[in-house]
Design a protein around this nucleic acid. Sequence first.
DNA 1: ATTATCTATAGATCTATAGATAATGC
DNA 2: ATTATCTATAGATCTATAGATAATGC
Lengths: 204, 204
Amino acid sequence: MSKGDNTEQAVLQAAEAEFLDKGFALAKTVDIARRAGVTHAMLHYYFRTKEKLFERIFQEKANALAQSLRTTFDDGKPFLKQVEDLAGAHFDFLSRNPTLPMFILNEIHLNEERRKVYLPMLVEALQDTIRDLGLLLEQALKRGEVRPVRTADLLFSMASLNVMTFAGLPIARQAFDMDDEDVRQFVTQRRAENIETILSRLRK
Amino acid sequence: MSKGDNTEQAVLQAAEAEFLDKGFALAKTVDIARRAGVTHAMLHYYFRTKEKLFERIFQEKANALAQSLRTTFDDGKPFLKQVEDLAGAHFDFLSRNPTLPMFILNEIHLNEERRKVYLPMLVEALQDTIRDLGLLLEQALKRGEVRPVRTADLLFSMASLNVMTFAGLPIARQAFDMDDEDVRQFVTQRRAENIETILSRLRK
DNA sequence: ATTATCTATAGATCTATAGATAATGC
DNA sequence: ATTATCTATAGATCTATAGATAATGC
């Protein structure tokens, strides 16, 4: 069964790459099998359907994202430091998974039916982070440390800036006529710029 | 030929709706024909291919976006007012075309080949706006009116916040448990919040 | 005996076009 | 004569499975 393990793992890895590249609708099980170097029938043997294989990949990614955000929380920090760390961790996670933003936006956007399954999955994974940042913001506001802002707006702005850094990168590249090196530098600069933008909005 | 005019227009309108909903790859010519209330062969009779029909819709949308941004430019205004008006006009255009952000991100993202055609088309339409805001920012910086920031960062942040307001709305809705009325209010509030976020970053 | 793998194909879906027919405008 | 429309279908693509065969572990 060691051969079987290899096949299963190869399919999983190929599926992750294919789904993240193209999304569910445009990913082809035939291509996943080709990437994995196994015959097409193997994919169905191990995972039965394209949908079940996809669900597994999506869940893994949602959990990994949530996990990387959780680790920043710490009651002892000043609120602005907490926000900076959270935004930084989010950005760094997306750096390691640059195709994830478009992947998630796409899946949520494209299919009414499947949205009902995957949107709750995603939000469920993020629930604790949303709640905890809300509580910390409330306290910081009471202490008069920051300018008033809604939790939803703070989180949404942070996520927007980070997500678009990767989802909008091809557009920025063309709009500002960047080569590969420019793009690398742009991404590096966006990390600081996104954080500064969020902190500027909060500082009194 | 008045009948022919109707058919052609019906196909165009149906195509716009279908492409904006689903993107090129998932839009079906059969469904466009159905939406238009004409037989499927008519679509090919008037536009030859799905691709040609798509190109026409994409170009129209890129031009409409560019047009709505251009109208805000005015040398007489203080720079912060110029930025506010530009961000507001961008937001309002997206309000009227709420499916456009995901549509554009999708097309640029999904297909290497077609990206080469449509990305230049989009950026070409926006070129003047990018250049003019860059010049105005440079002058404002010289006069010491704003904190230092790169043009690319200013524009990218503005676009990111506005675009994600619509592209990320389903996620915000689920994450913050909003009903239809909450969503309407959230969008309204985002307009002011996005502008305030950009201006906070610029103000000294 | 059970698990893993392969080949072949059914059945669904989709774009595009061929070829026939009807409507329109000089 | 030209333009618009319809029906029917070719040909490509894709998911899923049936059924045969090979490898594995008790």
